[in-house]
Computed example of a mutant assay.
Amino acid sequence: MTTHKDFRFAILYQRSLVKNHPLFDLTSRPITFIPIDSPVIGPRRERNLFSFRKRINRMDLFHCLSSYMPAFGIKVPTIITVHDLKYLRYPQLLGLRLKTVYYSWIIKRGIRKAAHIIAVSESTKNDIVNLGTDCGKIKVIYEANTLSYDKRADSPPSGIGGKPFMLFVGEDRPHKNIDRLIRAHLTLYDSLGERCPRLVLAGPDFQRLSRKYSEIADKVGIIFAGSVDDNRLMQLYRNALALVYPSLYEGFGLPILEAMAAGTPVITSNYSAMAEVAGSAAILVDPMSVDQINQAMMKIALHPAEHDRLKRLGLRHVRKYSWEKAALSTLKLYEHVISTNASFRGIRDYEEDLY
């Protein structure tokens, strides 16, 4: 972990989400860990964080690692990290109207009040600017692969039957575009028959799709792998013919880099953050076109030379992204915001917003 010799850090973490994290082994670093018991967002989170407000307000800087900046009581300069704006793009993801209004308010308020904003891609930065935000207070700091591949990842994953397969990693949300991916796979099966690679969908909440395709899934080779831990995920990446990731919207698209780090070719969308992150090291397709997704899958399935070419490109490309670079850029931003604290006008009491 990168730290600054003059900085001391206090990390507020959600106790229920972070267990046995290697970060907690850094006892020799100038870091204090403060557990809180609260959801990621909502009134109970606001109440719990409000109880820490005096401690937070004695600090020089507060960095909120999500778009959900605390609504009340924070008076020190604040940085927020915006990973995406999917809840503004796809409000139907939230269901209840009241929940949609609350998320929209808390996200837009955080963007407006923050002293500075970290966007995880140029695409996400553009989304923030489109809300009327001054681009001068937004800094792009890219994420990176978090998986550590070793020889254990080379062993074939169980439950696949030892046959070639293509992989999707994510959950069943409208913007993930899984229905078109499955239609592309069915077209591939119609063309190749028994030679068709299987399609493995790894992630939570595939009940809708498993019910929809229950009668044909075994025949056409669709496997709903469910939620997987990191070890199994690395096995899936390392053994897949390709990651197929035709999402309609992402703030970054971390599975793209995870697959490339495993030496796995990537098929992904030709716009939003996916094209930015993948660059020229992947096959880019129009995610609205089932035919383009199908043709890309066909190319990987039938042409080993194309598979090997994309593998080499991906392994080279993923080295451009590192958490060390991200950490150093973040530290520089901390220094900048703290040094300009005297002119800071972003964070005000909630009561001031009422007038």
Rank of each mutant, 00 (worst) to 15 (best):
Y350P: 02
P164S: 10
M234L: 05
T32M: 04
I36R: 07
T27A: 13
N231D: 14
P304K: 14
K332Q: 14
D127P: 03
S227W: 15
S339N: 11
L26V: 00
P164L: 02
L333Q: 03
Y245T: 07
S38L: 03
L354F: 14
S329A: 15
R45E: 11
G73M: 05
G314V: 12
L241C: 06
L65T: 14
P35S: 08
P43I: 08
V200R: 10
N57V: 05
I160N: 01
S66A: 11
T187R: 15
W105L: 00
F62T: 05
I107S: 06
H307R: 15
V244W: 10
E122D: 13
K219W: 00
I31Y: 11
R198T: 05
T264E: 07
R97Q: 02
G221M: 11
H175Q: 14
S104D: 09
F72Q: 00
K311E: 09
T124G: 03
V120H: 07
A301M: 03
F206Q: 14
A217G: 06
F62W: 03
L94P: 00
P91N: 04
K19L: 10
I117E: 08
V40A: 13
T340S: 10
P174T: 11
K151Q: 08
T264H: 09
Y90K: 02
T340I: 05
G203V: 06
S191I: 08
V285N: 12
F7G: 01
S155Y: 11
V285F: 02
S66T: 15
R348C: 04
I41V: 15
R183Y: 02
R47W: 12
G161D: 07
L131Y: 02
D218S: 15
S247K: 11
A240S: 15
F168M: 09
I141H: 01
G226A: 08
